[in-house]
Amino acid sequence: MAYSEKVVDHYTNPRNIGTLDKGSDKVGTGLVGAPECGDVMRLQIQVDDATGVIEDAKFKTFGCGSAIASSSLATEWLKGKTIDQALEIDNMDIVEELALPPVKIHCSVLAEDAIKSAINDYRTKRGLEAIEVKSSH
């Protein structure tokens, strides 16, 4: 299967690989997927207390090129967004941006789950209620 140019670009030059301090109350961590399914994503956001804006985002992903590209793209999109704006990110936006084929749509779903899971981790740390994650799959 041929990958789109954008997938290849994110795979070759992944943006924002790394680890944030998961102990910090400014950081939310989402860990989704499972090793036996062949995809695990860990996505982290660091939020500015005062503005509620995501000032940093990092990821690490075990998975195929599309999974790596989906999470890399997600971190790019998250930076500078408010939590509310981040919640608007839909997996189909990722599919469109990366031109993912149907068999790789689950990679984008996983990235959306990772975003929501990171936000919820942050909210829980702040004593806020977790947002109900509507599973789109």
Binding site: G33, A34, P35, C37, V40, K60, T61, F62, H106, D113
Partner: peptide, 26 residues
């Protein structure tokens, strides 16, 4: 390169048993 971006490799290096984690299915 892939291990540098693998959360599983990081956990392995930290001595975390991957079997002890409750993975979400998808």
């Amino acid at each position: 390169k892939l291990r540098d971006m693998s959360p599983l490799w990081e956990m392995f290096k930290e001595g975390i048993d991957l079997k002890s984690i409750e993975w979400s299915d998808h």
